[in-house]
Amino acid sequence: MEIEKPNLRVKIGSLNLQNPVMTASGTFGYGEEFASYVNLHRLGAVVVKGISMQPRPGNPPPRIVETACGMLNAIGLENVGAERFLAEKLPYLIKANATVIVNVLGDSIDDYQALAERLHGNDGISALEINISCPNVKKGGVAFGTNPEMAQKVTEAVRKATDLPIIVKLTPNVTDITAIAKAVEAGGADGVSLINTLLGMAIDSKTRRPVLANVVGGLSGPAVKPVALRMVWQVAQAVEIPVVGIGGICSAEDAIEFLIAGATAIEVGTANFINPRTTEDILVGISDYLKENKMDSIQKLIGSLQT
C-alpha cells in the first residue's frame, strides 16, 4: 500500500494542529521575522516570543555565547508587552493565517492570571504556553517551575482566567521533572512542553570573568538533546496529557525521535537561528518518513518506543 499523504494531525486538549511542528518561544520572534523564509500557515503552530503584561528591555550585553554544539543565552525575556503584541504583532500572524500560541510570563501568580485574562477573547490566539521558569518576585525569586505546588497554582490561576488550551513549559533544572508535570496536569493544563534551557555558564580564562553579563544563562542546541529526549520519555509515561518535545531539534530525524519517545508535537528552537527554514524542512522530513515506513498517520509513530 502506497501512502500518498499521511495524516499529520495532532491534538492538545481542544487545540487541533494540522501537524506537530511548532516553533520554540524566543527563537522565532513574533513570526513576521521569518515570513520570507517559512510559510507560516503551514506550521503546526507559531509559538511567539514570551510576552509579559508590561514590556521588558531584557538583560545587558553580552547576552549570548556559543558553546560546544550549543549556545548559552541570557536575553532576559526582552519583549514588547501585551498591548503592543496585540496591536502590532498579532494582526500580522492572523493575516498570514498562522496558528498562534502565545508564550506568557510573569513575576507573580496575579501577573499570569491578569495576562491570561487580557489575551483571552482575542481572535487569532489558539492557545497559551505558560513559561514557569521565571523567578517569582513575590516569593523571593524562586522559580515557579521548580516547585510542584507553585507550578500547580500558576496553572490553576491561568485556567480560571481562560478556556483557551494551556500548555505549561517546564524547566529541566529540577530533580524530578515528572513531579512538576503531574502537578500542572492536576492544575488543569492541557499539555506540557519540555525542556526549557538548562542552566549553564561560560568563563573567559583570559579575563577570568564570566562571558555573559548575567553570569549564568540557558543552554540550548544539539548539546541538550539527549537530556530533553530522556525527560520527554519520562514525562510521557507519567502524565495523561500530551507532551510537546523541545531540545536541540535540528532535523526531521531529531523530531521523529521525540515523537517516538512519546511527544505528541515538537518545537524547533535554536536551529531556527542557523537555518530559518528548519521548521518547514522538518515537516517535509516527517511526512517522508511516514511514507517510507508505510504509516498512514502520525499517531502510529507517537510513543512507539519499544524498550
Partner: peptide
C-alpha cells in the same frame, strides 16, 4: 546568533 532579529542576542 541569527543575524535576522530573532535571537535578540546582539543588543
Amino acid at each position: 546568533a541569527c543575524g535576522m532579529g530573532a535571537c535578540l542576542g546582539c543588543a
